[in-house]
Computed example of a mutant assay.
Amino acid sequence: MNSPVPAAARISIIGAGPGGLTCARILRKHGIPVTVYDRDTHPEARDQGGTLDLHADDGQLALREAGLIEEFFKLARPEGQEMRLLDSTGRILGHHVPAEDELFKPEIGRGRLRDLLLSSLESGTVRWDHAVERVSGSADGPRRVHFLDGTTVEADLVIGADGAFSRVRPAVSPVAPQYTGVSFLEAWFQDVENAHPGLAALVGQGSATAADGDRALFAQRNSDDHIRVYIIQRLAADWITASGLNAGDTTGIRARLLDAYSGWSPPMLQMITNNDGPYVDRPLFALPVPHTWEPTPTVTLLGDAAHLMPPLGVGANLAMLDACELALALAGSTTVADAITAYEKTMLPRAADTARILENGAEALLERHDSGEIAGFGPPRR
């Protein structure tokens, strides 16, 4: 089959996260039709995760191309760029306070970013309650997207923006993410200024982290007076069930955590003992470095589907940059095939270079700091 002109192609984006929605927004700005399919039953079906720091040289660049940069700055939290490096007693070893005009990587809630992108798209662009099972069809196309409810849709181009365990990835690559050996346990704290004032004072307006070589805690201030804490340990991926517990056993998990962090001070332990609601288990996975595939004119990937890395502040930014470059390649190419070739020629080497730098990043989150040096210190976020 001859590769179609992008404006006449049937383009399906799988995944309504920052990458998928950014790609859809820029495509629509250039008059290219697109449909986004997402497994969520509706936009508010689940918590979208913590805060993101969008960088001027990738995430913000994509929003500027999408025509949404001014709206972003109205929603962003520049004060969220504050960073505190602590020891296990809560003593501050390093402290970055952002300048009044510092806008290199302001924070925005993942949910607020999603709402911003969704509101920029025409009604009906995103089809909710469409969980993908697989993608079939020959490399030359057309492709068929199979949904779990038994329905299908035919497409000239399928864009996998569906994250770590992408259902689109097997259409171009047999590789699956591997466990890094490091696990996060997420704890939530609501109404922190009133209900958790000690934690609010410890964390400040941005993020705070401490590590002793085997364990770490990372807290990040979110919008709406909310703090998320990531409890970071070197454990088996199934450590909760292997301990005879289950994800809903907050009391049992808390007791195990208190034993693991027994040498830490009470001010630091409040990060694992006073949380509102259950813990959320988040073992860290990553794709091999480099992750590449043979080019095909009918399927491509962006973001974590293409290059899942340890969560060191680059995931959402790279996904949005991928989305921007892919959309612009489609807008500026004669055929879809030409656009995919141009996009992957830039994206794959960039992803490989970044992934090599972060390859052991999960272990680095546990490294002990004995000085105030915080160069390269970044949050566990995607």
Score class of each variant (00 low, 15 high):
190 Q>N: 12
191 D>M: 04
191 D>H: 14
192 V>H: 05
194 N>R: 13
194 N>W: 03
195 A>R: 15
195 A>S: 13
195 A>D: 14
196 H>G: 06
196 H>K: 06
199 L>F: 03
200 A>K: 07
200 A>W: 02
201 A>G: 06
201 A>K: 12
201 A>Y: 00
201 A>R: 12
202 L>I: 01
204 G>P: 02
204 G>N: 01
204 G>L: 02
206 G>T: 06
208 A>K: 02
209 T>F: 10
210 A>V: 14
211 A>P: 02
212 D>I: 05
212 D>K: 03
213 G>D: 09
213 G>Y: 05
214 D>I: 04
215 R>W: 08
217 L>D: 13
218 F>R: 03
218 F>N: 11
219 A>W: 09
219 A>F: 09
219 A>S: 14
219 A>V: 11
220 Q>E: 10
220 Q>G: 14
220 Q>P: 04
220 Q>I: 12
221 R>I: 07
222 N>S: 09
222 N>Q: 12
222 N>T: 07
222 N>V: 08
222 N>F: 08
222 N>I: 08
223 S>R: 09
224 D>E: 15
225 D>Y: 04
226 H>N: 11
228 R>V: 14
229 V>Q: 09
230 Y>A: 13
231 I>N: 10
232 I>N: 03
232 I>S: 05
233 Q>P: 04
233 Q>W: 01
235 L>Y: 04
236 A>V: 00
236 A>L: 06
236 A>N: 13
237 A>E: 15
237 A>S: 13
238 D>M: 04
238 D>F: 05
239 W>K: 07
240 I>W: 00
240 I>D: 07
240 I>Q: 04
241 T>V: 13
242 A>W: 03
242 A>K: 12
242 A>P: 04
242 A>Y: 00
243 S>E: 10
243 S>P: 04
244 G>Q: 06
245 L>W: 04
245 L>G: 02
246 N>A: 06
247 A>D: 15
247 A>I: 11
247 A>K: 08
248 G>T: 10
249 D>K: 04
249 D>P: 02
250 T>Y: 00
250 T>D: 10
251 T>E: 14
252 G>Q: 05
253 I>D: 00
254 R>Y: 00
254 R>H: 03
254 R>F: 00
256 R>C: 04
256 R>A: 14
257 L>Y: 05
257 L>V: 06
258 L>G: 08
258 L>E: 15
258 L>N: 12
259 D>M: 10
260 A>E: 14
263 G>W: 05
264 W>S: 02
265 S>E: 07
265 S>D: 12
266 P>V: 06
267 P>K: 01
268 M>C: 12
269 L>K: 15
